[in-house]
Amino acid sequence: MKNSPISELSVDARKFLVKRDDLIDPYLAGNKYRKLYTLLKTTPDKIDKIISYGGTQSNAMLAIAAMCKEKAWEFIYYSKPISKTQKLSSVGNYFNSITLGMKHIEIEHSLYRDFISSLRVSIDAKTFIIEQGGAVQEAKKGLEVLAQEIRAANLSVKSLATPSGTGTTALFLALSLPEYKVYTTPCVGDVGYLKTQMQALEEIPKNLIILEPKKKYHFAKPYPEFYVIYKKLLDAGIEFDLLYAPAMWEALLSQTKEEILYIHSGGVSGNGSMLQRYLAIDARKSNL
């Protein structure tokens, strides 16, 4: 497993450190690389097929597609119906995942929940199901490796931060580094939803601090303030994803004061499609 470097970043006159997991691989990077550690170490003959599900902006979807391409495993991904615009787009996580060989199957909204619940009923021994966002116990080993890298860096900082979808990364990182304070914030749903997702895996440790967003954000929806934060960070020298990072940075800048090591969770490969949406919003405003 590759050891990612650490960069310095100055934002709003504050110094941050950034663990550059985004530099590990163009597609299989960030926290998804860590979550898939056990499967990456699995020999190709042990598995024939990977099944997963969720949104089609998903960074996990793209990481799994890249892994399956490398291992020559079939990859089937289920989602609710998507727009014709997204299907025809030549940028973003969905396009890249299809290019890597992912088979995408749409399930009607009314049938989706029951269908996902039934996925495990008839799978064979060589099929592996990855829960939405990579929320599986197998992710724990990869986060333990990340924890070892952070300890080995012998940093003066004692606070970490990483955004949360299912909360898998933040949870296992906090469990692996009890001597650190670990900040996170929900980027999918609210704090209650995030706690429920985490508690399905392990008990939430006391050193994991969930920062409440200033308002409820809907996942993958463009927000002007997110674009402002994205540009601020880009101008400071590092590109972050537009889905998770802005919410985490907004919370850190407004609710914390100490020096923090931010775990870059990757996902910048999906920025192309999100930036198109922001540019479309700007164009509409200009025409008013």
Results as ranks from 00 to 15, higher is better:
residue 258 E to M: 14
residue 1 M to V: 04
residue 92 G to K: 05
residue 158 K to I: 01
residue 109 H to V: 11
residue 139 A to I: 05
residue 54 G to M: 03
residue 259 E to G: 11
residue 56 T to M: 14
residue 231 K to V: 05
residue 267 G to V: 11
residue 166 T to A: 12
residue 34 R to F: 05
residue 76 I to N: 02
residue 281 I to R: 06
residue 212 E to R: 11
residue 70 E to F: 12
residue 210 I to V: 15
residue 38 T to F: 02
residue 7 S to K: 11
residue 186 P to C: 05
residue 161 A to V: 06
residue 56 T to S: 01
residue 74 E to H: 09
residue 185 T to P: 02
residue 260 I to H: 07
residue 39 L to W: 12
residue 57 Q to W: 15
residue 158 K to M: 04
residue 218 H to P: 00
residue 56 T to V: 15
residue 223 Y to F: 13
residue 55 G to I: 05
residue 155 L to T: 04
residue 202 E to I: 00
residue 30 G to S: 09
residue 15 K to V: 07
residue 53 Y to E: 03
residue 102 M to N: 01
residue 162 T to K: 00
residue 162 T to R: 00
residue 71 K to A: 04
residue 236 A to V: 12
residue 218 H to Q: 13
residue 175 L to G: 01
residue 160 L to S: 05
residue 157 V to M: 07
residue 213 P to V: 12
residue 30 G to N: 10
residue 195 K to V: 12
residue 222 P to S: 06
residue 186 P to N: 08
residue 12 D to C: 08
residue 216 K to E: 10
residue 177 L to K: 12
residue 150 I to M: 01
residue 47 I to R: 04
residue 134 G to A: 04
residue 256 T to I: 13
residue 265 S to C: 13
residue 112 Y to D: 08
residue 203 E to N: 15
residue 133 G to N: 03
residue 151 R to P: 02
residue 181 K to L: 13
residue 140 K to G: 00
residue 86 Q to F: 11
residue 286 S to V: 04
residue 79 S to T: 14
residue 39 L to H: 10
residue 243 L to V: 15
residue 23 L to N: 00
residue 3 N to Y: 11
residue 215 K to L: 08
residue 199 Q to G: 03
residue 254 S to R: 13
residue 69 K to M: 01
residue 190 D to C: 10
residue 57 Q to G: 07
residue 138 E to V: 12
residue 218 H to G: 01
residue 236 A to L: 11
residue 271 N to A: 13
residue 118 S to G: 14
residue 183 Y to V: 10
residue 64 I to D: 04
residue 9 L to H: 06
residue 91 V to H: 07
residue 170 A to Y: 03
residue 283 A to V: 03
residue 68 C to Q: 04
residue 216 K to G: 03
residue 185 T to V: 15
residue 3 N to Q: 15
residue 31 N to Q: 10
residue 70 E to L: 14
residue 94 Y to L: 15
residue 195 K to F: 04
residue 235 D to Y: 08
residue 201 L to K: 11
residue 252 L to T: 05
residue 100 L to N: 01
residue 142 G to P: 04
residue 130 I to D: 01
residue 277 R to I: 08
residue 28 L to G: 05
residue 91 V to L: 12
residue 106 E to P: 00
residue 272 G to S: 08
residue 88 L to P: 00
residue 115 F to P: 03
residue 24 I to M: 09
residue 11 V to A: 07
residue 205 P to I: 04
residue 147 A to I: 08
residue 119 L to K: 11
residue 120 R to V: 02
residue 127 T to K: 08
residue 169 T to I: 06
residue 85 T to A: 15
residue 269 S to N: 08
residue 230 Y to M: 03
residue 187 C to N: 01
residue 238 I to N: 04
residue 176 S to H: 13
residue 47 I to G: 03
residue 288 L to M: 10
residue 71 K to D: 02
residue 168 T to N: 03
